[in-house]
Design a protein around this nucleic acid. Structure first.
Length: 318
DNA sequence: AACGCAGTCAACCGCTGTCGA
DNA sequence: CTCGACAGCGGTTGACTGCGT
């Protein structure tokens, strides 16, 4: 494995960085900044390739890096985000200030994997993880609502919902699994659609998934069919966890004026709608710039207490 | 003490997307 | 439109470390 595409010069050094190299790189970047990484090694007096310099700076040397163990909150966020976006480490890292994608990836691979076991479905080719108590939308995994099987219990139940009163569990306030919501921009959900609401603890993450399992219906909702066909989770979630609650009373044209316009700044939401926190869910469609879900639609309200398990969130047929 | 093994994590590899010429 | 340079990303590697035997 001697080849390195960008570092094929004899002089280029590889492997661990020495303190002297770190010092040179820090000194150069802090005084000159970085524009073109390929120029950095020469100008900084380093016998490294630009790519290596960039990696070293981004992952370890930049001043805003946050070291040390992940907090329980960070851990919850990582798990929740990973349940939604899969192995998009850079995306996950963007929600954890000071953490790098590499760090999160390593953390996930070394630590979290131990606590969350993927059930062996044997047939799914999806890269989206399936967690015991985090139920992935069935249409992504199977395209067949009725074929969804209950996930196996965790081998290690210390993390997820082992105790709804345990604030260290991932979803301490809700027995409801994590879902997402799908709707094409401009398509109002039919009233008899199943819509599932999940509340992820204190993370303000509310995902709704239209569980109308009729595959034909989904395919009618172009462009959603593209990911349905490919078992691929669409890039819809940039705003999902960062948005604050839609203010009560903020509906339709009044929305921007009352401050929730931030939801319209999320580029990746163009074809998706958002559900927001209780009390009262408002489901927004960016294309319509208005509420398409809420009081008129059968949107469940998550429990307000840890002991409220009465919310009907999943069809009994499952 | 020596060895094997598993876990950790910094770094590398190869691919993709973007942008400017 | 094409091409090359570059940045960024996710997957993977391998050195290091700690622990058990």
């Amino acid at each position: 494995m001697g080849h390195h595409s960008c570092c094929n010069q004899q002089k280029v050094k590889r492997g661990l960085w020495s303190p002297e190299e770190d010092e040179k790189l820090i000194k150069y970047i802090t005084t000159h900044g970085y524009g073109c990484w390929s120029e950095v090694p020469d100008k900084a007096g380093l016998q490294r390739c630009g790519k290596s310099c960039r990696l070293r700076w981004i992952n370890y040397l930049r001043p805003d890096i946050r070291r040390g163990r992940f907090s329980p909150e960070e851990e919850k966020l990582i798990i929740s985000l990973h349940a939604v976006v899969g192995n998009r480490w850079a995306h996950i890292a963007s929600h954890l200030p000071g953490r790098t994608d590499n760090e999160i990836k390593n953390y996930w691979n070394s630590w979290i994997k131990k606590k969350i076991r993927k059930p062996n479905t044997g047939t799914s080719t999806s890269s989206i993880p399936q967690y015991s108590n985090i139920q992935i939308p069935p249409t992504i995994l199977t395209q067949d609502f009725n074929s969804l099987t209950q996930f196996e219990p965790l081998e290690n139940q210390t993390m997820i919902n082992s105790n709804p009163n345990d604030n260290n569990s991932i979803f301490p306030s809700s027995p409801i699994p994590l879902f997402m919501f799908e709707s094409e921009c401009g398509v109002t959900m039919a009233k008899d659609d199943h819509e599932l609401v999940a509340d992820v603890g204190n993370l303000n993450l509310v995902d709704i998934w239209n569980t109308n399992g009729n595959q034909n219906d989904h395919q009618a909702l172009s462009p959603l069919s593209s990911f349905v066909d490919h078992n691929y989770l669409p890039p819809l979630v940039d705003g999902l966890v960062t948005m604050g609650p839609v203010p009560p009373g903020c509906i339709g044209e009044d929305c921007e004026a009352s401050g929730s316009h931030e939801c319209f700044e999320k580029n990746e939401l163009s074809e998706w709608v958002e559900a927001q926190q209780y009390p009262g869910f408002y489901i927004w469609d960016q294309g319509l710039q208005g509420q398409i879900g809420g009081d008129d639609l059968p949107v469940s309200t998550p429990p307000k207490s840890n002991t409220d398990n009465s919310v009907d969130t999943f069809p009994s047929s499952l």
